[in-house]
């Protein structure tokens, strides 16, 4: 997954996200912030999945939710979702 655009994002500790290239801003909750920071560090989604399962009271749909989150990032043109999400399914 190409996460180059994520590197440019300014992400606050409280989950306010600003894309300096487009001027768009977003907010993410605690789980979204965890995944976003993982992706910015270049971690695979499988790592994020494990982190979500260990640090949060996750529903059974956590895998689907994670994929939906990545899909949303893709729709906002923030990640190029060309590779399969290894380990997340």
């Amino acid at each position: 997954m190409d996460t180059l655009r994520l590197d440019m994002l300014a992400v606050s500790e409280t989950g306010f996200v600003f894309d300096p290239r487009t001027g768009h801003s977003y907010t993410v909750n605690a789980t979204g912030l965890t995944v976003l920071n993982d992706l910015k560090r270049g971690e695979p989604l499988s790592t994020s999945l494990r982190r979500l399962q260990s640090e949060f009271d996750c529903p059974q749909t956590v895998t689907e939710d994670l994929l939906a989150f990545v899909e949303a990032l893709h729709n906002y043109d923030l990640v190029d979702k060309t590779n399969p999400i290894e380990g997340a399914t």
Binding site: M8, P20, R21, T22, G23, H24, S25
Partner: peptide, 21 residues
């Protein structure tokens, strides 16, 4: 460079944010 974030009825910028592109 900036992106308009708020527009008037006439399409004029009422709000905007600077960007780095």
């Amino acid at each position: 460079a900036m992106r308009k974030t708020m527009l008037t009825r006439l399409g004029k910028a009422w709000g905007a944010v600077t960007i780095d592109d």
